[in-house]
Design a protein around this nucleic acid. Structure first.
Length: 207
DNA sequence: GAGTTCAAGGGTTTACATCA
DNA sequence: CTGATGTAAACCCTTGAACT
């Protein structure tokens, strides 16, 4: 009694003469693992030469639907699909392998484009932060100039006054009050520890 | 004729069976 | 039980025919 798959393969051989005839095991022959032999040219063996056959639209549609359900192909499903599609189970397995490879490539491409987007927005963000740093540096320079001017003014006043130490103490608090800073000594911009804001560690380079 | 697509080839790995 | 050997199938990367 013939195996159903072998009967099926015989039917395929009838439907597609010349295609896969090399891979269909003959009566009493053990099933070979290796499929077709590589042919140097299609017409080398005349009508017996291998001709690559494209799967039909319906076959591909059914395969795609099955792939959508589950990317992995168990042996039972492979045989069932093969018989539904009129294909060799090996062809179904190959199709799934190739389809998984295409799926992986697509995934990789998507991942790459997502990373690219993230990189681009990070670059823009970095530029904004850099220009912010420049603005703040300008402000800092201005403030330092103000400090310099005020301390020169204080020096000028104190040189005419006998109680110089008192007047300096009287002038300082209102000056820092202007910047909304209280309780600081003259080292206003000293930072004891590097202050890392989320993802902004690089800012310390400018400090 | 160069580039792309896709079924299939071929090598490797893994799981299981058999045997000494 | 265990290690060696064989076989089948799954997987991955490459190849080559067909198509654009």
């Amino acid at each position: 009694m013939n195996h159903p798959i072998e009967e099926h393969m015989a039917l395929i051989s009838q439907l597609y003469p010349g295609a896969y005839t090399q891979t269909v095991p003959q009566q009493g022959e053990s099933k070979s693992r290796r499929r077709r032999k590589k042919s140097k040219s299609a017409g080398e063996n005349g009508s017996l030469g291998f001709k690559k056959r494209k799967l039909s639209e319906e076959q591909v549609n059914l395969l795609e639907r099955n792939f959508g359900d589950e990317h992995k192909l168990e042996s039972e499903r492979k045989d069932r699909l093969a018989s539904e599609l009129g294909l060799d189970p090996r062809q179904v397995a190959v199709w799934f392998q190739n389809r998984r490879a295409r799926w992986r490539n697509k995934k990789l491409e998507e991942e790459y484009s997502n990373l690219k987007k993230i990189h681009e927005t990070t670059i823009v963000e970095k530029c904004c932060l850099e220009s912010e740093v420049l603005k703040l540096k300008d402000l800092l320079a201005e403030a330092e100039k103000d400090i310099q001017r005020l301390s020169e003014r204080v020096d000028g006043i104190s040189s005419h006054s006998p109680s110089s130490s008192q007047s300096v103490g009287a002038i300082d608090p209102p000056f820092f009050g202007e910047f909304g800073i209280e309780g600081y000594d003259d080292d206003v911009f000293y930072m004891a520890e590097p202050t890392y804001v989320n993802g902004m560690g690089w800012m310390n380079l400018y400090m």
